[in-house]
Amino acid sequence: MKIKMLESMAGQDFSLSSGDITDRFSNKEAGRFIKLGIAEKAPDEPVKKPETSKEWDAERMQILDENAGLLAANEALKAREADLLMQIDQLSAFKSSVVSALGVEPAGQETAVKARAPEQR
Rank of each mutant, 00 (worst) to 15 (best):
L64I: 06
D89S: 14
K28R: 13
A72Q: 13
V98G: 02
D89R: 15
L91A: 10
D65W: 09
T22F: 03
R32Q: 13
T111A: 07
P118K: 03
P106N: 07
M1D: 00
E119I: 13
I38F: 11
S53H: 11
E29Y: 08
F33S: 00
K41Q: 13
L102D: 02
R24P: 01
R60Q: 09
L64K: 14
G108K: 13
A39M: 03
S8V: 07
R60C: 11
E119K: 15
I21W: 02
G19W: 04
I63P: 01
N74C: 13
P50Y: 03
V104A: 09
F94N: 10
A58T: 12
E75Y: 09
S26R: 04
A82D: 05
M61I: 12
A79F: 01
K41A: 13
I3K: 04
Q12L: 00
G103P: 12
D23L: 04
L64D: 01
K78R: 14
V98W: 05
F25N: 02
L84V: 15
A30H: 00
S17V: 06
L16M: 01
A79E: 08
S18N: 05
L6M: 08
I21Y: 04
M5G: 00
S92I: 07
D57Q: 13
L102T: 08
Q120M: 10
L77M: 09
A107G: 07
S18K: 14
A101T: 09
E29F: 06
F14T: 03
A79M: 05
E51W: 05
D44R: 02
E81K: 08
N74D: 12
Q62G: 15
D20M: 09
L71D: 01
E55I: 10
M9W: 08
F33I: 01
N27Q: 10
V98I: 13
A117F: 06
Q120Y: 11
E7T: 05
I34Q: 04
V47G: 05
K41F: 01
T22H: 01
K54Y: 06
E45V: 11
A58V: 14
K54P: 05
L36N: 08
E110K: 14
K49L: 14
A117T: 05
A58K: 08
A30M: 02
A112S: 14
R80K: 13
R24D: 01
F14A: 01
K48Q: 04
S26M: 02
G19T: 04
A115L: 12
G11Q: 04
R60K: 10
D13A: 10
S53N: 10
D20N: 15
D23G: 15
I63V: 14
M1K: 05
S26E: 01
S15K: 00
P50E: 10
D65K: 13
F14G: 03
M1V: 07
S26K: 00
I38A: 02
E119F: 11
K4R: 15
A30I: 01
S8M: 07
L70F: 11
M1C: 05
D13L: 06
A112D: 11
A72E: 05
M86Q: 15
L102Y: 07
A79P: 06
A58C: 00
S92L: 06
S92T: 15
D13N: 12
L6P: 10
K35A: 12
D20G: 14
V104Y: 03
M86C: 10
D65A: 08
A101M: 11
D89H: 09
F94I: 12
